[in-house]
Design a protein around this nucleic acid. Structure first.
Lengths: 231, 231
DNA sequence: CACTATTGTGAGCAATTACTCAGGTCTTGC
DNA sequence: GCAAGACCTGAGTAATTGCTCACAATAGTG
């Protein structure tokens, strides 16, 4: 199938405008093809055909098929990261609900373009070590950032902010992904609201309890503060 | 790649014990191979090799590669459905938390066997119309059942039980899947607890509020006036 | 214009894959 | 013991795929 690892970096730097244009055509064509056919059936020849260039040209810019998907994924991750980071730079003192909403909204927006493509990327992505590393780093950053926010915010009451952060990040990403890509798609706005409500109520609920009701049993939360250690 | 649709039903009924045994070998071998190599790289020859039978025998039982994955998926879905349904038959009057836990636990248990395989199945599955239908039906059943439970339980306070049910089902399935398969896996028990806590607090929280705390400000989540435009 | 560097072309190769088939070996029923 | 079916075998085939390479076209420079 795919020839072995040969690096994922693009093959050459374009020196003329024409080249940069071709590059872009390849990328958008690949996005469509992968989204429509999946990774395995999305052949390089098909991509070239869709981009209206020859297969040879394609391989002048990308050393192999993986590299195309890689670039697609990089761009997506970068876009997502930027959106969230830009939000961070704004005025900070939001309510917790607004903060969570600030997580959910960019993720939703980022998935509206082409849910199918995202799906393909996450599916096949982790087979290449470089992609795996990139994704893992991205996720770790998000978790760390989220954890920091949780720890800083007084409203938050969870035992282990690390676990909570992972739960939150995963939930937002996955649920948005699934429910937007679903055939019977849920209204975007409602999805955002419900997701935010769920996470916010989780974070602010009394630890070990289920909702506002007092729950006498259960091992109490370690009073040592928020610095609960990840397992 | 795969030859076109030719049905997914097994090719023949085994009449001797020997045959049933071979069948089982194929299935377990396929499970391992798919989990290890993914669907595309998990070739039928490799499966046959691992099962220590010839490739010809394999094709006596399954008309094509898809059919093997299909059977694997069917079995998984059936197992999951059974686990939940068996729980339903027990004494009903549980607390909401216990009900949600009754959802989460079988899902977790079902994923502990081989997360990678599950991943492959969900990834590739939806390409075959028959599989797609099976999965969709399974999901619809789960959502319907969940919605019914939500409506019956007095503690639940959500606007739209259908949306809530979908959210709950997706969240449990996806988050469990992701966090168990993750390289830095979270402790199973803690995962269950946090997940249950999140969902329970979401379901029991007063609509429009976030958690037990009284929240004077903020526009409610009523459809009338959230200033929430998607970016 | 001439010369060079950059970019584009597409037939075709090597490798891989799902799957077949002609013929073997084992089980069963009598 | 012996036929008839059930089961198994594995070399081979047709099709597909990622990718190369020898060459053609275009753009930049003097």
């Amino acid at each position: 199938m795919t020839t072995g690892r040969r690096g994922l970096q693009p093959r050459k730097q374009p020196r003329q405008v024409r080249a940069e244009l071709t590059r872009q055509r390849i990328l958008t064509a690949a996005a469509h093809i992968f989204a429509e056919y999946g990774y395995a059936a999305g052949t390089t020849n098909r991509i070239a055909e869709r981009a209206r260039i020859s297969i040879g040209s394609l391989y002048q810019y990308y050393p192999n098929k993986d590299a195309i998907l890689a670039e697609l994924l990089f761009r997506h991750l970068d876009a997502g990261g930027d959106a969230i980071r830009s939000r961070q730079d704004e005025d900070e003192p939001d309510s917790l609900e607004e903060i969570i909403r600030g997580f959910a909204r960019p993720v939703i927006a980022n998935h509206l373009d082409d849910p199918q493509l995202l799906r393909v990327m996450m599916e096949h992505g982790p087979r290449s070590p470089e992609l795996l590393e990139k994704i893992a780093r991205h996720e770790r950053e998000r978790v760390a950032y989220t954890q920091e926010l949780l720890e800083r915010h007084p409203e938050v009451r969870v035992e282990d902010t690390y676990v909570a952060a992972r739960l939150v990040v995963s939930t937002v990403e996955l649920v948005v992904h699934q429910l937007i890509a679903a055939p019977d798609s849920i209204d975007t706005e409602r999805l955002e609201n419900e997701l935010v409500a769920m996470i916010t109520s989780y974070l602010t609920a009394a630890p070990g309890g289920s909702g506002p009701v007092d729950r006498p049993h259960h091992e109490g939360r370690a009073p040592g503060g928020p610095g609960a250690r990840p397992s």
